[in-house]
Design a binder for these strands. Structure first.
Lengths: 204, 204
DNA sequence: AGGTATACGTACCGATCGGTAACATTGTCA
DNA sequence: TGACAATGTTACCGATCGGTACGTATACCT
């Protein structure tokens, strides 16, 4: 673990280092898990499309469940990157931050092959408490709830927790209806409805 | 199908007629599919817990997928029964109808083993277009959207379609967060948030 | 050149998946 | 009694599931 690697191997900066098996596997698994679901995809198909073999998968990941958890941990990073991008675009203006984030979600849901939120889908696929994938998913949602409630408070809402939770309901609704109805579905109105809800919550 | 059954078999009213194998199977499948997910449950476990054998399952249902579709068709009936119950409780008052329906949903989501909406979950489990289970699920959601928009129009909302879709987002959000957060989660605020959204949409 | 550690492939495991063939048993009716 | 429909019984199918034992190739360091 903490072994000293005295000198890095002599690789030039612009030299192409072939991607490790584990990386290729995670890349393929991410795509398949998101688009078709975790339960729907077997490890054989993952290694086949990654151009590696099964033992390579189990050298990099202790189990399929842990591979799924790794996929979600990466998803988590990308999710917060998108979220923080919307936040950074409107410093000190939580209402505009929410609007920016939801506008982007609303647009994504209208794409033809939209499959919702990988976190949400994983939690639906694995209702069992303590499942590695579910643990990651739950943590992500708890944090999202916390931040939405904090932003609602920063907006000056009378009942900030209710508004924050309302925004979370709209977001999850957009994730689900986005993949249920496709383009033209209810999800395209998520930003508008959130704004109405915010307006109503601030006037109280 | 339309074969004439001249005279009903002589069964006394209080006589217990043993449930047919198909019924027992569907009853067990409904419970397991809803609680654990369709993909998570194998046909062997269904027949085992139903106390029947596998050929009996395949005499009553052409495939596991069709059994899942049957489960959802029954779910559909029960769903609309609950919906119409809320509607009938407040004749001519769509806002109160929505409130009644959402209050009930909010309460259900706080139960310890709440698993969301069987329709929604099935659509997440089966993203593939045309899958028997998904077909039933999509039809149910389309109809729900239609009715919510109609109710929003009856309320006199300026943009009835947006309000109807907003209510659908809140509902789907409640289904999902109900199973993600458990008791104390955002879903308990669904009726309150819907009312705020309606209020805001009517004032416009 | 030789040792060593890392990375990978071939081949295989038992279990379970959804689904079926063939036949025995039962209860209900005419 | 005899026909019929429904169910049970047993045994099986090929495919796929997640996972592993074990041998091989490659690269680096001494």
């Amino acid at each position: 673990m903490s072994r000293i690697k005295s000198i890095e191997p002599a690789i030039k900066a612009d030299e192409v280092v072939p991607p490790r098996a584990g990386e290729k596997i995670l890349r393929v698994a991410r795509d398949l898990f998101y688009r078709q679901g975790i339960r729907a995809i077997g490890v054989d198909e993952i290694v086949r499309r990654a151009g590696v073999t099964k033992p390579s998968l189990y050298r990099s990941f202790p189990s399929k469940d842990e591979l799924a958890a790794s996929y979600l941990r990466q998803y988590d990073l990308e999710f917060w990157a998108r979220f923080d991008e919307a936040v950074a675009a409107h410093p000190g203006d939580p209402r505009a931050q929410i609007a920016a984030f939801l506008t982007r979600i609303g647009k994504r849901t209208q794409k033809p092959d939209y499959r919702g939120c990988g976190m949400t889908n994983a939690a639906v696929e694995y209702p069992e408490r303590g499942h590695p994938a579910r643990v990651v998913s739950e943590a992500n949602k708890q944090e999202l709830r916390r931040r939405l409630r904090a932003m609602a408070a920063a907006m000056g809402a009378g009942d900030a927790d209710t508004l924050g939770d309302g925004l979370l309901l709209l977001i999850e609704g957009a994730y689900i209806t986005g993949q249920l109805f496709g383009a033209g579905g209810p999800a395209k109105s998520v930003a508008r409805n959130a704004d109405l809800l915010i307006e109503a919550s601030l006037k109280k």
